[in-house]
Design a binder for these strands. Structure first.
Lengths: 198, 198
DNA sequence: TATCCAATTAGATACTTATTAAATTAGATA
DNA sequence: TATCTAATTTAATAAGTATCTAATTGGATA
């Protein structure tokens, strides 16, 4: 999941003291106590910030006797500063083309698996097509409302006789969740898509 | 002060929800409620994040009737992502050259205004040279220690008879501060330099 | 005018983070 | 071995932030 890494990088630079540390290190390596003096903070504070910068791979460390010298990781600084732009537009583009492809697939699936009066002929065997059909059915349920099992059966029978199978598919593919015989829509429609995207 | 602006930009991108918002907006403008739905958060949360993104100039807004459409500010995103690298190296470079220049100036000032046995001939009239002399004197005081006015006078008299003037200069140029007749070194040597640098 | 609707504000809560003083660790050096 | 020194950890505090619900605003529309 690339998102975390980018967030972490920006967190590391979202603090004035840490940026000042990097400015100082850009002129050459320095140890913790000197940094503490120049920035008028305690050594403990430098350790704290060094940890954050290290986690974001923004600094190197070199030990000489008791002293640790920090230096800037120029490569990571430069490459990560550009990563955010790439992340945003790469995912936007994928989301865009995926929407287009899915739109066409969806049209054809709805045309082929539903009759003209809206009944479901049968569940597609192909995974992606099945999801499209299930999503279509589920879109006629109310968000946030609770349904009894009986109500679910009645609802599904509008479209197809095999309510048991379809009801089970709703749960299996997490369009709904069931708690103590009560069914409810899962609000996170986008979830699966996000997970694969970012 | 450019530092604040850069910190603000990185704060704006240091949150996964805000990055997701930007990814969504990269495909085209969207209003608050749609964003809230897609990200499974409340409209109030979107308002909160929109405020942060607006403050960092990362989004535009367009009103149509009751609905506000957000869109990404491509220009600011791209230009600010590069700003951090520039800030760090520009200031490092300036600090470096300044140190070189100052080093030579300092050498000549110390040679010209101090006698061979370390006494101060007289205070330079030129501002920058005066600061160098004062800094030199002050460097012989202990950090963190308190001095009475009497002790200050004795200390200064090692170098020059006109202790009153020099003592006043220490305060005026903030090398020391005085609280209730007690003098102490100002620990923020770098301060002035920082203010002009970043 | 009354009503509707998206957005915002206010207030509350839970979580994160920057900072420090004090105690501890890990390596040298005497 | 005892001691010194730079760095780290710990524990505490204070400030900041992400999120929600509920109340409010400010434009449309009926």
């Amino acid at each position: 999941m690339q998102l975390d890494k980018v967030v972490n990088y920006h967190k590391a630079l979202a603090d004035p003291t840490r940026i000042k540390i990097l400015i100082l290190l850009a002129s050459g390596e320095l140890n913790g106590q000197i940094l503490a003096e120049k920035l008028c903070v305690s050594p403990a504070t430098i350790t704290h910030h060094a940890t954050k910068l290290r986690e974001a791979s923004l600094i190197h460390e070199r030990r000489d006797k008791n002293t640790i010298f920090f230096s800037i990781n120029d490569y990571f600084l430069r490459s990560n500063s550009a990563a955010i732009v790439e992340l945003i537009y790469k995912n936007a583009k994928e989301a865009g083309t995926m929407d287009d492809k899915n739109k066409r697939l969806k049209e054809s699936v709805l045309k082929n698996f539903f009759t003209t009066d809206g009944k479901l002929k049968h569940l597609p065997a192909q995974f992606k097509k099945k999801l499209i059909v299930l999503e279509q059915l589920v879109s006629n349920l109310e968000k946030g409302r609770s349904y009894t099992e009986k109500e679910m059966n009645t609802f599904i029978k509008q479209y197809h006789d095999d309510f048991a199978t379809i009801r089970r598919e709703f749960i299996m593919h997490q369009f709904m969740y069931r708690d103590n015989e009560i069914y409810e829509l899962n609000p996170q429609e986008m979830w699966e898509r996000w997970e694969t995207l970012v």
